[in-house]
Computed example of a mutant assay.
Amino acid sequence: MADLSNTIKGSYYMKTGEYSQAEVDFEEAVKKHPDSKSAQYYLGRFLLAQNKATEALSHFERAVVLDPGDADYHSWLGITYGELGDVNAEEKSYERALRLNGHHLQVRLYLGHGRLRKGNLRLAIEAYDAVLIEQPTNPAALYNRAFILDIQRKYSAAKMAWLKYLHWYPAGRFALQATDHLNALGDFSYENQFIGDRAITLAEIKFQQSRSSVSQSSYPPLRLIGAIVSNLPKGTLQVVVCVHNNKQLVKERAIENAKTGAMAFINTVHFSRLSEN
């Protein structure tokens, strides 16, 4: 009954984020029931959530002793070792957890992170591949796998890996970084653009073959530009279009870009570099 009560209370505090109050409550629970595995575990979790890894360690170790068959206990013990910089103990904890539950995605993911920090690139990518078998769109596994391939100079595979990451996660800080890596490999399917003081990642704007009409796949990024422009107090939106030996098509595509993205703000658009080349 005590363990059930701890689980209910611990889940509540996890959802509310009241970590300091949770620490007080579970310290009391550990004093009353030092052999309660759940009390030790949750106290460790709430200490770790407050960046108190040194204090959390003994509680996770105690939880593992009380219930060595729980993969989660080994997992969080490993995370705590990682926070304290003991990468060897961290990896061993993850390996024990995986022997208990071979499909534990968090453990697989953190095992990859630990191996990457140690420079064991081959083993790290194996761990990330195992995560992606279970969860093909896991963002951390996709990003770090691409990063490793880049480090290994497997440029063709790295390019495909960066494209896969950006397909699923085309926005945010890591998208900006992934795009820089992709561009460094000579692929400009995505580019980072600056509109006002904001940096965004945009997929290549595509047109229907030999026509000025924008491909439907390009509507989302153009409309994103329009939404950003609509909130700018002032400024000029520059549209750069290049087509080989067809100046009229260049102009038509530039106008179509502006119409699709900027809509009512077409009058603020300045067409720069209407290039034929």
Rank of each mutant, 00 (worst) to 15 (best):
M1N: 05
A2I: 10
S5V: 14
N6T: 06
T7Y: 04
T7W: 06
K9A: 13
K9S: 14
S11N: 12
M14G: 02
M14C: 08
M14D: 04
T16K: 13
G17P: 11
Y19M: 06
Y19L: 06
S20R: 15
S20T: 14
A22D: 08
F26D: 13
E28K: 15
E28V: 15
A29I: 14
K31L: 15
H33R: 03
H33F: 03
H33N: 04
P34S: 12
D35Q: 01
S36V: 03
K37N: 04
S38W: 03
S38E: 04
Y42S: 00
L48T: 13
A49I: 05
A49F: 11
A49L: 11
Q50A: 14
T54A: 15
A56L: 03
H59I: 10
H59F: 13
E61Q: 15
R62V: 02
A63T: 13
L66A: 09
D67E: 06
D67S: 02
P68K: 09
D70R: 02
D70I: 00
Y73P: 07
T80F: 06
E83M: 08
E83K: 07
A89S: 05
E90K: 08
S93E: 07
Y94F: 15
Y94V: 10
E95V: 11
E95G: 07
L98V: 07
L98W: 10
R99A: 11
N101Q: 07
G102K: 14
H103K: 15
Q106Y: 01
V107I: 08
L111D: 07
G112L: 06
G112M: 01
H113I: 15
R117M: 02
K118F: 05
R122V: 09
L123W: 06
A127F: 03
A127R: 01
Y128Q: 05
Q135E: 14
Q135M: 10
N138H: 11
N138F: 08
A141D: 03
A141G: 04
L142P: 01
L142R: 00
N144V: 03
N144H: 07
D150I: 05
D150L: 11
A157G: 02
A158E: 03
A158Y: 04
K159N: 07
K159Q: 09
W162A: 00
H167Q: 14
Y169C: 01
Y169F: 14
P170V: 05
G172R: 06
L176C: 11
L176G: 12
Q177T: 09
A178D: 08
A184W: 08
G186S: 08
G186C: 07
G186R: 09
F188Q: 13
E191Q: 09
E191H: 09
A203Y: 00
E204Q: 15
K206F: 08
S210P: 13
S212T: 10
S215P: 04
R223V: 04
L224A: 08
A227L: 02
V229F: 05
S230V: 09
Q238M: 12
V239L: 12
V241M: 12
V241H: 09
V241F: 12
V243K: 13
H244E: 13
N246K: 07
N246L: 02
L249R: 10
E252R: 12
I255R: 08
I255M: 04
T260D: 04
T260P: 01
A262Q: 13
T268C: 11
T268Q: 14
T268N: 11
V269F: 10
V269R: 14
L274Y: 06
S275G: 00
